[in-house]
């Protein structure tokens, strides 16, 4: 039987495929039956936050920063509560990263401010002496792509029932509604409203002017995203 298999490439390939798919069948597929359920307090990303998440991905921030706090004292001391599975329910893709050249960012919204991020993204070594992070000056001039983030919101709402425009339970017992626009124009208006709040805390005059004109520089979206990580 074995010898026959070794001379019949088709059946041989079938055999190899069965052996290599075994692990996936046992390990991965069944877990999908139990969908990843959000924990209380986890809300979907708003339009501007999702736009910022795209900026984060576009610049591969995840190449150097993790978003996963492991359950060790040294990590919870440094970054806050360890990560829970449900907190990532709306993360598509996940951004855990595989290398911590810089610190973890999963709860960075708890201890850094808009102001801090603004200075730091412009001149990291000026804020953290000895930092090897490069400056991200182009984010202050590049315009953020709100439309694509909006399209993603629509997609996840449509295909994965992500609760936009629906109440989501919060830790304090209240309910939060994350709004998603009904049209491209409305989505942009929602994002701009969020951007104005961020820009009010910023110093860069060009950024402030751009937001006043109705444009959203990438940095504003990115900061909105980073502030949402709590």
């Amino acid at each position: 039987m074995f010898h026959w298999l070794e001379k019949h490439p088709f059946f041989f390939a079938v055999g190899v495929f069965l052996v290599i798919s075994f692990a996936g069948l046992i390990e991965i597929l069944p877990n999908f039956a139990q969908a990843s359920r959000p924990v209380i307090g986890t809300a979907p990303y708003s339009t501007l936050e999702l736009t910022g998440r795209h900026v984060y991905i576009k610049n591969s921030c995840n190449a150097c920063h993790s978003q996963l706090v492991r359950p060790f004292k040294s990590e919870t001391d440094r970054y806050g509560h360890y990560s829970l599975s449900g907190e990532y329910a709306y993360d598509r893709p996940f951004l855990w990263g595989s290398k911590r050249t810089g610190p973890d960012l999963w709860r960075v919204g708890n201890y850094r401010t808009t102001d801090w991020h603004e200075n730091h993204m412009k001149d990291p070594a000026g804020v953290v002496p000895g930092s090897i992070m490069p400056a991200y000056t182009w984010m202050f001039t590049n315009k953020a792509d709100v439309d694509t983030a909006y399209a993603e919101q629509l997609t996840v709402a449509q295909f994965f029932s992500v609760p936009y425009n629906k109440p989501v339970p919060m830790k304090d017992g209240s309910a939060k509604v994350v709004k998603m626009g009904n049209s491209v124009a409305e989505a942009n208006a929602l994002a701009l409203a969020e951007a104005q709040v961020i820009a009010a805390d910023m110093k860069d005059q060009n950024v402030k002017d751009a937001v006043a004109r109705g444009e959203i520089p990438e940095i504003v979206a990115l900061i909105a995203y980073l502030n949402s990580l709590k």
Binding site: E27, S85, E87, Y88, D91, E152, T155
Partner: peptide, 12 residues
């Protein structure tokens, strides 16, 4: 957008 979210996405 990925078919998988969060922990599942990481696993795959």
């Amino acid at each position: 957008v990925s078919m998988y979210s969060g922990t599942n996405d990481a696993l795959v």
